[in-house]
């Protein structure tokens, strides 16, 4: 990008006085025609690996992909427990009670503070 030219200063001063929202004249109504949109959404379906991964793969990945967990900083056990409980209590994730401890243990072992 080039350095700002001097000629832009007058325009800048003028524009500074303008309001945020600019009504368009009726004659200048945008002529855009919206077209039906159809897309595919990619997902490489990353899986958790190692001891205890099944509980996480089976319970967590139905709603979100693995990176939601893998990109987190190291969190302590209380925070990981709270996250799992939020999924159960707020998001109503149907997690088998027997799996809760296994999920938390896996998260703490692999993504927890040491």
């Amino acid at each position: 990008m080039q350095s700002f030219s001097n000629s832009r200063w007058a325009a800048a001063l003028f524009a500074t006085l303008a309001l945020g929202l600019v009504p368009l004249p009726v004659q200048a109504q945008t002529t855009l025609t919206l077209k039906t949109s159809s897309v595919d959404l990619p997902d490489p379906l990353h899986q958790f690996k190692g001891e205890g991964a099944d509980a996480v793969n089976n319970n967590c990945l139905a709603c979100h992909s693995a990176e939601m967990i893998q990109t987190q900083p190291k969190l302590n056990a209380a925070t990981w427990t709270a996250e799992v409980n939020k999924m159960i209590n707020v998001m109503k994730a149907p997690v088998d009670k027997a799996d809760v401890a296994a999920i938390v243990n896996y998260l703490v072992a692999n993504y927890g503070t040491k």
Binding site: V39, D40, L41, P42, D43, P44, H46, H64, S65, E67, M68, Q70, T71, Q72, P73, K74
Partner: peptide, 24 residues
């Protein structure tokens, strides 16, 4: 602090290269 690495992808519809924080 870690993890700092993120995937890059141009696979999303109508998108060029983006940093993937989460696929889905």
């Amino acid at each position: 602090s870690a993890p700092r690495t993120r995937e890059l992808s141009s696979a999303f519809p109508q998108k060029g290269e983006m940093i993937v924080q989460r696929w889905r």
